[in-house]
């Protein structure tokens, strides 16, 4: 799987939610695109990641 352009090995089948939590992303501060489509937050737990997936994860920091 590719995450922000970097290859990541998927050790076991897991949901997008489990992946994000394991990687310590703050779910309230991100947006995730999977294979060119934005993933609604409500679908994080039902999306199962595949080896050929391409994820783009944007993390926002504060300030404006």
């Amino acid at each position: 799987m590719k995450v922000n352009g970097i290859t990541k090995k998927l050790e076991k089948e897991q949901s997008l939610y489990d992946f994000l939590v394991t990687e310590q992303y703050d779910l309230n501060r991100i947006a995730v695109e999977r294979n060119g489509e934005i993933v609604p937050k409500a679908a994080y737990k039902t999306v199962l990641l595949q080896d050929e997936d391409k994820l783009e994860i944007v993390q926002f920091v504060g300030g404006g």
Binding site: D26, A31, I38, F60
Partner: peptide, 14 residues
């Protein structure tokens, strides 16, 4: 998107 708080940024973008 020109918010200050990161959770608000994420909410609007999503």
């Amino acid at each position: 998107e020109a918010f200050d708080k990161p959770d608000q940024k994420s909410m609007l973008v999503n």
